[in-house]
Amino acid sequence: MQYIEFGKDKDKVSEIVMGLMRISEMSTGEVLDLIETGLEEGINFLDLADIYGGGKSEEVIGKVFTENPSLRTEFFIQSKCGIRCDPDFTYFDFSRDYILEAVDGILSRLHTDHLDSLLLHRPDALMEPDEIAEAFDRLYKAGKVRNFGVSNMTPMMMEMLNREIQFPICANQIQLSCAVTQVFDAGFHMDMQCDKGIMRDGGGVLEYCRMKKIPVQAWSSLQYGYFQGTFLGSDNYRELNTVLNRIASEKVVTPMAVALAWILRYPGATQAVIGTTKSTRVREAAKATEVRLSKKEWYEIYLAAGNDLP
């Protein structure tokens, strides 16, 4: 397993992150086996959100920690807040009071006294940076949160927050996979009259994060579209799978490991979030950090996913 430095204390965290969105219906024994497998493979980073399973995903992890207290110190725990799932409709809320309320709920469900990282979950167009700064300051001084980050934010959104908050943004979690490549497409097709030249990330989010030393966390790292399914083995991505299978055979790993290695090949600090609930898959994913793709292999995978270069 390879590691990056994360947050203000430069914690050593794994490049592979275990995303726990889908564990809400699993037993504590099944989840214990899952995260212990990750730990055996060197994965020490767990990613949650208060909306996953309506809070049940955090509750399951909380029960695991209650039954196995020593495990809490083995993991770097990240959760997210800001998406309000009200009976009428879902919306975003980064108000000071809601952030404070949400974190208290997260800590209660997790049966822990602090989060190692808190991300604002998607952008709130009505956010007030000074309110966010006050919430972060209170949470940090109370010992409830150690690091603060964002998800799906553009460079200018992060710049706006940076004018008020006293903490460096610890991460930006964005959608990225071999089959979801918009953050690369616009750069390749800069100044060209084609759809792929459209800046869909607000303009250079990868480059911004790299310059500011903000780790990029890739969610849906094995998916295509917006939760449309995995591209591994999909008939929609036959050429991509042919290339992934060939490279996997050459490097004696699985296609999953190659697909994740493609994400991790980006020169900035990068993590790949996996959402599997199978221990065997966790072991496959962990091998990704042992794979170093050449530039030619990286571009071959990019093109095999249906992309082009000018």
Results as ranks from 00 to 15, higher is better:
residue 180 V to E: 11
residue 235 D to L: 11
residue 130 D to W: 08
residue 61 I to E: 03
residue 240 L to R: 10
residue 130 D to K: 15
residue 10 K to P: 05
residue 284 E to A: 03
residue 201 D to C: 15
residue 108 S to A: 14
residue 192 M to Q: 02
residue 128 E to T: 09
residue 244 L to G: 02
residue 2 Q to N: 14
residue 152 N to K: 00
residue 201 D to G: 09
residue 116 D to E: 12
residue 123 P to C: 05
residue 9 D to C: 02
residue 45 F to V: 05
residue 76 F to W: 11
residue 277 T to P: 00
residue 130 D to F: 09
residue 16 I to P: 13
residue 159 E to Y: 15
residue 203 G to F: 10
residue 129 P to F: 06
residue 54 G to V: 08
residue 80 K to P: 14
residue 148 F to E: 03
residue 121 H to Q: 11
residue 60 V to Q: 06
residue 151 S to R: 05
residue 60 V to N: 03
residue 57 S to Y: 13
residue 164 E to A: 15
residue 152 N to V: 01
residue 141 K to V: 07
residue 89 F to S: 07
residue 131 E to M: 10
residue 48 L to A: 02
residue 242 T to F: 03
residue 220 S to R: 10
residue 268 G to V: 12
residue 247 I to D: 03
residue 3 Y to H: 08
residue 150 V to Y: 00
residue 188 F to D: 00
residue 297 E to V: 04
residue 308 D to N: 15
residue 257 A to H: 08
residue 163 R to M: 07
residue 25 E to A: 07
residue 136 F to S: 00
residue 1 M to S: 08
residue 105 G to W: 10
residue 182 Q to F: 13
residue 115 L to Y: 05
residue 56 K to S: 11
residue 62 G to C: 06
residue 77 I to V: 11
residue 266 Y to Q: 12
residue 248 A to T: 01
residue 200 R to S: 06
